[in-house]
Amino acid sequence: MLEHIELFFKSIFIDNMVFAVFLGMCSYLAVSKKVATAVGLGAAVIFVLAVTVPLNWLLDQYLLRDGALVWLGPEYTDYNLSFLSFILFIATIATMVQLVEIVVEKFSPSLYNSLGIFLPLIAVNCAILGGSLFMQSRDIQTLGLAFNYGVSSGIGWFLAILAIAAIREKIRYSNVPAPLRGLGITFIITGLMGIGFQSFGGMLTGGDEAAPVKEEQQVVNDKVSKIEKKELEKKDIEEKEISYNDTINN
């Protein structure tokens, strides 16, 4: 249970899709002019992520990863199909998006109209494919955690687009320098928000980590680790010089 909670908050705040890894920036910038459309798109992203990440987890677990085909029989142990993951993941995503599009068109024509061109473009939203690829590279262990990861990174993206849409609605009344209007100021605001989100980096929970040290101590620790790093770098440089000298001597 604890690992679920930890993953949940970690993917929303620390590894936020927009502010930490810049995924889904295109639709984030294009659809964030109004809060209402931003909410619609954000909800669609949460839904698609919640469906595709567990599906791709199953594909990865039972088809793609090294030795995943072992359930077919012992002679399949050596197969590693992970180079196919891009094409399979994107095919799953494209299919699911088509499905979502049909469902939304049927049940909420107004939402369908306001999302317009962007619903099909969810298929090429980097946040969706990125969710699946990070799920694979971070080695998420169970189907439940994969679902959790999909939902929570979707929520993180939702929060980001909601925040920027609200800010952009207000900033229309401010006197922004002409060349910065629109895109430029949005980039800079996103950057500042990203810096704000960096402060969540210390929010790690879980029993494995050491209890949070007091601030002064942390500063000292940081300094110590910096010094250690520098020494290591120095060693590296020295080693390089030595090997360089060796090659010259030879």
Binding site: A20, F187, I188, T190, G191, Q198
Partner: peptide, 9 residues
């Protein structure tokens, strides 16, 4: 990472 956004801005 956020520095990249500001540089592009």
């Amino acid at each position: 990472p956020p520095a990249a956004l500001i540089v592009v801005g």
